[in-house]
């Protein structure tokens, strides 16, 4: 088996918040099946806070664990706070990710951000520049 941390294994075996939200306030999709991993995040926003976060993921064990923990980290947070979730934070929260999996599987924060962008767009609000993996420290 790949060398994953206990935390990754735990989230992989028992992923939180799997699924879709009916009539979501925002949807964010990243990756594609050709490169290996694909994640779709669905959010519900109440009073500027994430009242529900769900995801669907196609990919390896790391991709599934990343999605799960991002949904957990984001749940209940304000949009501004949720935006502060970075791939580096996600990896830290998961007690590390294998080096070769870091970039391809660590797409959860990006998908969440896209879902927030989608929500703001629908609200007719200005979309703040989206965080991208390469702008962040790792």
């Amino acid at each position: 088996m790949p060398i994953y941390s206990e935390k990754v294994m735990e989230h992989f075996m028992n992923p939180r918040n799997v699924g879709e939200i009916d009539n979501p306030d925002g949807v964010g999709e990243v990756g594609n099946p050709v490169c290996g991993d694909m994640m779709t995040f669905y959010i519900k926003v109440d009073d500027n806070h994430l009242s529900d976060v769900k995801f669907k993921t196609f990919g390896c064990g790391a991709a599934i664990a990343v999605s799960s923990i991002v949904s957990e980290m984001a749940m209940g947070k304000s949009l501004e706070e949720a935006r502060k979730i970075t791939p580096a934070l996600v990896a830290e929260e998961l007690e590390g990710l294998p080096k070769n999996k870091y970039h391809c599987s660590n797409l959860g924060a990006q998908a969440l951000n896209k879902a927030i962008d989608d929500y703001l767009k629908k609200q007719g609000k200005e979309v703040k520049s989206r965080r991208r993996g390469k702008n962040e420290k790792e």
Binding site: M1, P2, F12, M13, G36, G59, G61, A63, S105
Partner: peptide
């Protein structure tokens, strides 16, 4: 890979040619 991990949790050893593995 995710199939292999879940199979392994059931005691089954297999392999895959997926990119992630």
């Amino acid at each position: 890979e995710s199939m292999l991990m879940l199979l392994s949790s059931k005691g089954v050893a297999a392999s895959s040619g997926s990119a992630c593995t």
